[in-house]
C-alpha cells in the first residue's frame, strides 16, 4: 500500500498535527515505506490462527467496585493551561 498526499493530509487533520505540503510529500514516502515493510508479514499463512492479544497467556486484570481515587480537583487541574471555579477552561466549542 502506498500513500498519496491527500491521504496524508487527511490523517494529519484527524490527528490534529499540522503538516505543510512539502512535509506531506516526504511523509507519503516514509509512511509508504514503513507499511511496505510491515506488509511482508502477509507472506505468512495465518489461516486458522487466532490473533495474538498478549505475549503472556493471562486474563484481563479486574478491580473490585470500590471508590479509591478522586477528591483531588486541585491536582487534576494543575496542568490545565486555564481553569476557573474548579472547571477546565477551553476555547469555546459550542455547535
Amino acid at each position: 500500500m502506498s500513500f498519496d498526499k491527500t491521504t496524508i493530509a487527511r490523517i494529519s487533520r484527524l490527528a490534529r498535527i499540522a503538516t505543510t505540503e512539502a512535509e506531506q510529500e516526504r511523509l507519503a514516502g516514509e509512511l509508504g515505506g514503513i507499511l511496505a515493510w510491515v506488509e511482508q508479514l502477509d507472506e505468512v499463512d495465518v489461516e486458522g490462527v487466532a490473533p495474538m492479544t498478549s505475549v503472556v497467556e493471562m486474563n484481563l486484570k479486574a478491580r473490585e467496585d470500590v471508590v479509591s481515587d478522586g477528591a483531588n480537583a486541585e491536582g487534576i487541574l494543575k496542568n490545565a493551561p486555564k481553569s476557573a471555579h474548579g472547571f477546565f477552561v477551553v476555547p469555546k466549542v459550542v455547535e
Binding site: R63, V66, V67, S68, G70, I76, L77, G86
Partner: peptide, 18 residues
C-alpha cells in the same frame, strides 16, 4: 478507575488521573 460515579458533586472532584 477508582473515582466515584456519584451525580451532582463539585466539578472535577471525582476524577482519577486515568
Amino acid at each position: 478507575s477508582g473515582a466515584s460515579t456519584e451525580f451532582g458533586s463539585e466539578p472535577n472532584t471525582q476524577v482519577s488521573p486515568v
